[in-house]
Design a protein around this nucleic acid. Structure first.
Lengths: 343, 343
DNA sequence: GTTATAAATGTAAGCGCTTACATAAATCCA
DNA sequence: TGGATTTATGTAAGCGCTTACATTTATAAC
């Protein structure tokens, strides 16, 4: 079978030490703080490392050093381009700093998120990235108890204490809603992801409400439809929205994917966008620009968010201090899908 | 300083053992092979675990058990929706089996891939997922030396020895090319990702060539343009393709993203698709159906691929045997972007 | 050339867990 | 009922590394 422990087997620190004729401590130092070892020795040791093809055993290292150089991230799903992009940038920044990414997805499920966090913490992640603030207290407590630094991304709210890198969802959406209202829309509907346990979606919906109130649209209520993620889900949601409120002239979606679905459903129903109905999104994924008509949406700097979240986390791990949260700007991309309200 | 059994610090196995008044071995058994422990004791131990909030230390466990329950994956980039989707499914299947995903991205760079693999292996991944066959021998050797099981995804080629879950890129693209040729196209061009070190792209290009040869299109040579990934890159590539070969009537792209770019450039240049020029893609991402006109492409079951790759890897880790590779079917989605060749 | 000081290396004690082996308790069978 | 099994638990030896501390060697200061 596989007697993998011949002389062929995986070399250990001790093997390298023997081969280079030094102590294990010296080898360890060559690897971790080379400046403590005189050049001559260091060269000899490195040669031994190379010749034996030695790679440190992670478990042993973690055990002895109480540091894993691993950062965990729990995101709702990678299938959402927005997260995929942010996480890609996050990971690149980690690698640049010698960290590895441990990844898990929660499928927008709070219980699953907690479970995943437990395994990530048990694996000794030095820090964790979480999406949005909303989650059970148990999670924050666990993090605190194990003193694992944590940063929140995709949200920014200065009433919250968690360090975050994100943007103000409510504010960004309110801005867009004001624009919609300025176009004369009064019967506005919103298609949202489920807002329970999702402060990003909730913030966006609240933003619309806020803008409506500001504009004195108090008689009209906002027609809100909650739905899962996906283009098809957006299509269905538009139909049910129009069934509920046939007078709707503008549909604001909390993300571009739902908006694309809504756009499609509108076309299928023979409605012209934006002449008969306006539709807006959020995120500004590539699709937004490509849609027909192109989608008015809120642009979010996903890559920058990922990158800065990584830096922040690395700082927190290194210096054990709580940094200032970072609020990133968003801006509105005005495109054809938003037009004046029909008479 | 920290007498590790204060109530404040992280509890260890020994703490649990003391609390439950059993030996550490028994606690360990309760956690790993509960059937070896009599119910009464087990209940007591589990209660202790819960009350102390104990979580096993991963490093220690890995060190002692020589198993990490971690699976690594190195993908070119998560920003490509195709990989994001496959990896999401891969990860879900891992979690279902109690494994965690360690993820890295290579940015299509062979050297980076090797480096990432080293760190993943050093972290004791029990198995690794790689995309495509093409890579330096050093990588396969490393894997072999450390006897880390590895499966290749997104490619299937029964002349290769690596276990794989994928599809035959060449064959799938040849099929599509035959269709294109049957529509009367003779001046065909291809926009591809760089084919060096990318057997998927290369296979697809070869598929086109093969179909052309079969059809006796030997005089005509295939105009090949290689370009990085991205919609914009696709646009630029189309322009340069048409500059090189103005007679081109069909442009086959090796993925949908490039095709979308090409589509857009064609429109900008005032060309009608498919009346003036036909364009095809590969992957069948959501965008393909949404494009105007909708994109003819090859549908690939990305999620299934991810899921089955995970199962295969788990089997390999558990039973230490080399499984049969799995060839997944692809099928052509005929949509408006492909039409008969103009006169 | 001492001796004090700094630099380089070595020694060995864990880190928290698993598991082979030893021991004790429970069950079986003639 | 007493030994032979079987079942449950305990003991303790590592797993491969880091690092405090001890020791040796080089350098500086006089």
């Amino acid at each position: 079978m596989d007697h993998s422990s011949d002389e062929r087997s995986v070399p250990t620190l001790a093997d390298v030490a023997r081969y280079a004729n030094v102590s294990t401590a010296t080898v360890s130092r060559c690897l971790n703080s080379p400046e403590l070892v005189v050049e001559l020795t260091r060269v000899r040791v490195m040669k031994a490392v190379a010749e034996l093809g030695y790679t440190p055993n992670f478990g042993a290292r973690a055990l002895a050093a109480k540091q894993t150089n691993t950062i965990g991230a729990i995101i709702p799903t990678m299938e959402n381009a927005v997260f995929a992009r942010g996480i890609q940038a996050f990971q690149e920044e980690l690698v640049r700093n010698g960290k590895t990414l441990l990844i898990a997805s929660s499928a927008y499920d709070e219980r699953l998120e907690e479970e995943q966090l437990r395994t990530i913490v048990a694996r000794g992640a030095d820090g964790v990235l979480l999406i949005g603030y909303d989650r059970s207290d148990a999670i924050y407590k666990l993090l605190k108890k194990r003193s694992v630094p944590c940063v929140v991304a995709w949200s920014f709210d200065n009433t919250q204490r968690q360090p975050a890198v994100g943007f103000d969802n409510r504010h960004a959406m309110a801005e867009l809603a004001r624009l919609v209202i300025r176009q004369g829309h009064r019967n506005i509907a919103c298609i949202s992801a489920p807002i329970a346990g999702n402060d990003r979606a909730r913030g966006r919906v609240e933003g619309i409400r806020q803008a409506m109130t500001e504009a004195g649209l108090t008689g009209e209520t906002l027609t809100l439809t909650q739905t899962p993620y996906g283009i098809e889900a957006g299509e269905i949601a538009l139909r049910s929205t129009l069934a509920k409120s046939p007078d709707t002239t503008a549909v604001m979606c909390v993300n571009d994917v739902l908006a694309i679905g809504a756009l499609r459903a509108a076309k299928e129903m023979g409605l012209r966008v934006p002449e008969d109905i306006s539709i807006t999104g959020f995120d500004d994924i590539e699709l937004a620009m490509l849609a027909e008509p192109a989608l008015t949406t809120v642009h979010v700097p996903h890559r920058e968010m990922g990158r800065r979240a990584a830096s922040m986390l690395i700082q927190m791990v290194k210096h054990r201090e709580i940094p200032e949260s970072i609020e990133l700007p968003t801006d509105i991309r005005l495109r054809r899908s938003l037009g004046p309200a029909p008479k």
